[in-house]
Simulated assay, not measured.
Amino acid sequence: MAANEEASSAWPNPPYFYTHFTEENLSALRAHRQLLNLGTNDPIPKESLPRDSPLQFLIPPPPATGDWWSFTEQWSVEERNVDLEYAGIETLYDQEVEEPSGAQRLVELRRLSKSLLLNFLELCGLMSLNPQLFGVKLKAIEVILFNMHHLINQYRPHQARETLCMMMEEQLQKVRKETEDNREATRKVNEALVKASAIAQQVREEEMREPAESERDKEVVEKEKAKKRDAQGWKLIAESI
């Protein structure tokens, strides 16, 4: 099969050089890269390899330019907004509609919708009178749909902008909620510290009002005070949760 026939076929065969991607060739290419003291992402110059070396097919080609074929369709490497005239389709609306202001675009979309319904009704009547002429109406309906689709695509930049705005608003709301949660946690911690300070002050005052009569009594009093402080501390922790 010729190269052009293979490229334009519905299901073309893989490129012929895929058979060179073997483990031996990949290992040889890595060794050649190390020999040239190149990094992992550094390109290997093709002139450093012999012309008849199969390793030539393992080096990626330069970026493509112009047009290319894929499954019988021609595509352009350069992204561009293809208009109806470029695609060979009749334009049914005023060219000023493609300007950034979208008020007139809505009017044209409504007008095309009414034309679409009218042509559909005419197609139904034509099928009952002369079905052989259905192709003319189908072509008219197809042109109207292409024009409507092209006008709707003019809203793509607006859709992308609004989507970004919604994402930024969601992130802002998330940050605000996290900030509010942090403030609430800080407030609870401050309240717990104030309560702990008050309890400690209360314990010190009670200790000053209850002097011990002997060493043994003093030890007993210290244990009671320790139990009391522990109980008050656990009570404070339970209230803070």
Rank of each mutant, 00 (worst) to 15 (best):
K114C: 00
K139L: 02
F120S: 15
R111T: 09
L123F: 12
G125A: 13
L121D: 14
G135K: 07
G135Q: 13
A103L: 08
M127A: 14
G135I: 07
L117H: 10
S128G: 09
F134C: 13
S115L: 11
C124T: 13
L133C: 08
L138W: 02
F134W: 12
A103V: 08
A103D: 06
C124W: 04
L106R: 03
V136A: 09
L121V: 13
R110I: 08
C124H: 10
F134Q: 14
L118I: 05
A103G: 08
L117I: 09
L129A: 15
S113Y: 05
K139I: 06
E122R: 14
P131G: 01
G135Y: 10
L126I: 09
S115C: 04
L138I: 07
L121S: 14
Q104K: 09
S113I: 05
R105H: 00
L116E: 05
F134V: 11
V107M: 11
N119W: 08
P131H: 03
L126R: 10
K114G: 07
L116G: 01
A103K: 06
R110Y: 06
N119A: 14
S113E: 11
L106S: 05
L112T: 02
Q132T: 07
V107N: 05
L116D: 05
L123V: 05
S115M: 09
L118N: 11
N130C: 07
V136R: 10
L133I: 04
G125K: 12
E122D: 15
K137S: 08
L138S: 00
L117S: 14
N130D: 13
L117P: 00
R105M: 02
F120K: 12
L109C: 02
L117M: 11
R105V: 01
L116S: 03
L117Y: 06
F134A: 15
E108D: 01
E108M: 00
L126K: 13
Q132A: 12
K139F: 04
N130P: 00
S128N: 12
S115W: 04
L118W: 03
R111P: 04
A103M: 06
A103N: 06
K139R: 03
S115E: 11
N130L: 10
L129N: 14
L133N: 13
E122S: 12
A140E: 05
N119P: 00
R110H: 08
L123T: 01
L118T: 10
M127F: 05
L109S: 01
F120A: 15
V107A: 08
S113K: 03
L117K: 11
L126H: 10
L117N: 11
L126Q: 15
